[in-house]
């Protein structure tokens, strides 16, 4: 019998805490991927995170690093303020779709367009979670929410806002990728992308933006397994996964 060995443990960049997230929500997975990245790159003591308004407003209760809490949608403005006065620190915003894709569109677009050297992890679960399941800019066509009880009518509410694709159109160099966390294979890929995003920031290369397709079983009215399936069958075909923009690839003139 050999001594037991640890093969899985809590990252040092996470606190020993119970989260308030609902069963089956993938915020926890995404938190962990960021925390592992901070551990592996040795960034925890240099990092300042920014929590949004939304389900992840309490993110600072789970991450074990300095944190600020922003007003709804303004995390990229706070991040700009911090990164400009502390350029050698690592700054990231963690934002949901109501926060980033609705009330905070100006802030995210312009932070990206200025090429601010911080990282954004954008959690897209196609619904306002914390306020109880209202239509988000990313809500899918015909998806039922409390504020589109007959399903999202694209003639009235437009089509889901593809943030990563929009940001990728900017001329300013950036790293933009869309990933998902509904299967182990996707989680491993998401980790790679998040780590790459922080690497670009460490190198001072560019703004980095990772959109993560995430589940909200509670507000979708599905079991966790059904939610993963719905994400795969409904969200992924519209929100196409993959690299959208890279600082290593010059833009096509």
């Amino acid at each position: 019998m050999s001594e037991p060995t640890t093969i899985f443990k809590r990252p040092a960049s996470m606190r020993d805490a119970f989260t308030h997230y609902c069963p089956g929500c993938t915020h926890g997975v995404i938190h962990r991927l960021i925390a592992e990245t901070l551990d592996e790159l040795g960034l925890r003591e240099r990092t300042i995170g920014i929590a949004p308004v939304g389900c992840s407003v309490l993110a600072y209760n789970y991450f074990y690093c300095d944190f600020q809490e922003a007003a709804h949608g303004r995390a990229p403005a706070l991040a700009t303020g911090i990164k400009r006065v502390l350029p050698d620190r690592i700054v990231f915003t963690y934002q949901g779709d109501g926060d980033l894709a609705s009330i905070g569109t100006a802030e995210i677009l312009h932070a990206a367009n200025r090429g601010e050297k911080f990282t954004t992890v954008f959690v897209n679960n196609a619904v306002y979670g914390m306020t109880g399941g209202q239509m988000a800019p990313t809500t899918m066509p015909n998806q039922v929410t409390t504020t589109c009880p007959r399903g999202r009518d694209v003639n009235l509410a437009g089509w889901p806002f593809p943030v990563a694709d929009v940001l990728a159109q900017l001329r300013t160099p950036a790293y933009v990728e869309r990933v998902a966390v509904h299967t182990p294979r996707h989680i491993i890929n998401a980790k790679r992308a998040i780590k790459q995003a922080f690497r670009y920031q460490m190198e001072g290369r560019c703004y980095s933006f990772i959109e993560v397709l995430s589940t909200c079983p509670t507000n979708w009215g599905k079991t966790p397994a059904e939610a993963c399936k719905w994400l795969d069958e409904v969200m992924v075909p519209y929100f196409k996964l993959g690299l959208k923009k890279s600082p290593d690839r010059p833009p096509v003139e």
Partner: peptide, 13 residues
Amino acid sequence: LAASQMIFGAAAA
């Protein structure tokens, strides 16, 4: 909106 929130970030830093 953004300018004043940048102050929030910088002041907290």
